[in-house]
Simulated scan of single mutants.
Amino acid sequence: MMKEPQGRSELVGALLAAEFADAGIDIEAMRRVYLGAHDEWAQALETTGVFGLRALAEITKSWAADPRLLRDALLADADELTRRRCHAAWTSFETRPIAAVGG
């Protein structure tokens, strides 16, 4: 499993939590993360201007290798109920096949 540096993962979590706080993180978002559809979150990080192209490439590569890194970043500031719902959904994705994004 590829691991992000600790400081970077915390920064990614803070930036993504701030970006998506109003929209909320739901089961469909978790499904997209699980299936590897990470473009919306990569673009959100890119628009912050905090990371250079190399760092963005490393971050998205780590997400591709282990989507749980993105999941955890999105849930960094989530309330306990949201976190539990999303983890339960994730577990269900692992135990039964799910349709591909858009399918």
Rank of each mutant, 00 (worst) to 15 (best):
S9Q: 06
K3H: 09
E58L: 07
D72K: 11
S92A: 05
I27S: 12
Q6T: 07
D72G: 01
I98V: 12
W90G: 03
T47G: 02
A44F: 07
F51K: 00
A99Y: 08
L11H: 02
G49W: 15
D66I: 05
R96P: 00
A76I: 07
A65F: 06
E80Y: 00
A89W: 00
S92C: 02
T60F: 00
I59Y: 00
P97L: 13
R71F: 08
E10Y: 09
H87A: 12
G24L: 14
F93V: 03
Q6F: 15
L74K: 05
T91N: 06
G102K: 14
M1F: 11
A64S: 10
R32D: 10
R71N: 05
A73C: 13
R96K: 10
L53F: 13
G36R: 13
A44N: 05
D39I: 00
A76E: 03
A78C: 12
Q43A: 05
P97K: 05
V33R: 03
A88C: 01
A65L: 07
H38M: 12
L75R: 07
G24K: 15
R32Q: 14
M1Y: 04
A89I: 06
Y34H: 14
A89M: 06
R84H: 04
D22I: 15
V33H: 04
R54T: 11
S9I: 14
K61G: 06
R32K: 15
A99M: 10
E80Q: 12
R96C: 02
Q43L: 09
Q43R: 13
G49H: 13
G24D: 13
L45N: 02
A37N: 07
I59N: 00
A44Q: 07
R31T: 15
A55C: 05
Y34A: 02
M2I: 08
E46D: 09
T47M: 07
E28T: 14
R68K: 15
G7H: 12
R85I: 08
R32M: 15
K3R: 14
D22Y: 10
A44K: 04
G102A: 11
E10P: 01
V33C: 08
F51L: 05
H87M: 14
E28H: 15
T91F: 10
A89Y: 00
